[in-house]
Amino acid sequence: MAEAAFPASSARPRRRLTLRRVFASRVVSIALYAIIIWLIFRTARTGAEAMGYNWQWYRVPQYFLRRTEGGYELGELVTGLGASLLLSSVAFLLALIVGLAVALLRLSDLVVGKAVARVFLEIVRNMPLLVLLYVFYYVGGPIFGFDRYTASVLCLGVFHGALVSEIFRAGINSVGRGQWEAAKSIGMTRGQSYRYIILPQSIRFMLPPLTGEAVNMIKSSAIVSVIAVAELTTAGRNIISDTYMSFEIWFTVALVYLVVTLCLSVFVSRLEQRHAVKT
């Protein structure tokens, strides 16, 4: 009886079109991105025109790939990107090791271990990345003989290791107490419990934030350009000092970072979906 009072179209309850839901839709968000990017370009363009900037986009492709007598040769931006990725990977590996070690220390029963981990975290988290880099390079260099590259890897690894340790800790804590008890009751050591029971289960919780951290690593690796380590940002700076095409090159470098980090995010979300189906 009551149903008849409503028009047929609302037989299936229609959700209200709120502003939030409009912005959450894929079409709208892509359109928004496009508009924003177009606005940035336009503003830059008109601004550049106003100051009489001489656009030379045609000179950019050679920094990706150029033809020589002997064939093709990779440009500075590509080799720079390769160096950035290599640096980030090595530093991320270090961050994983540091992060796991710090997390396990914090979760251990060792009073000294816990304290060491806490102090490490407080120091690293409360120091600007740039200052940490200077410490590793200008202090670590003379004392321990770190070269630029070693100082960069250590700095990035330690800095992100602190953040990664929090991810590990949260992931480990998200595995229930019953799993520890089951592992113990079949006689596993703490190490075996972590390795075979706890860590494999916490990976699922850790993968999304770890991806985020890998993206952050690639982004913050740009900072090592201040001590002139060869990588993408340094390559950009070098090209500009030769050509004065600062607008074109910075736009290009920014776009390259964007593409790489977006690809990484998409790749891992695929990976996650597969993982989610399996268990």
């Binding site: 089951a182 006689g187 596993m188 075996q192 268990t279």
Partner: peptide, 28 residues
């Protein structure tokens, strides 16, 4: 000493067979 819990506490990331072999293989 074997222990059976109220909430089972099986290892959810392992198959039944792996649940049964992990102790004997890794511990024994």
């Amino acid at each position: 000493v074997g222990m059976v819990f109220q909430q089972f506490n099986l290892f959810p990331h392992l198959t039944v067979l792996e649940n049964l072999t992990i102790g004997p293989v890794r511990v024994r």
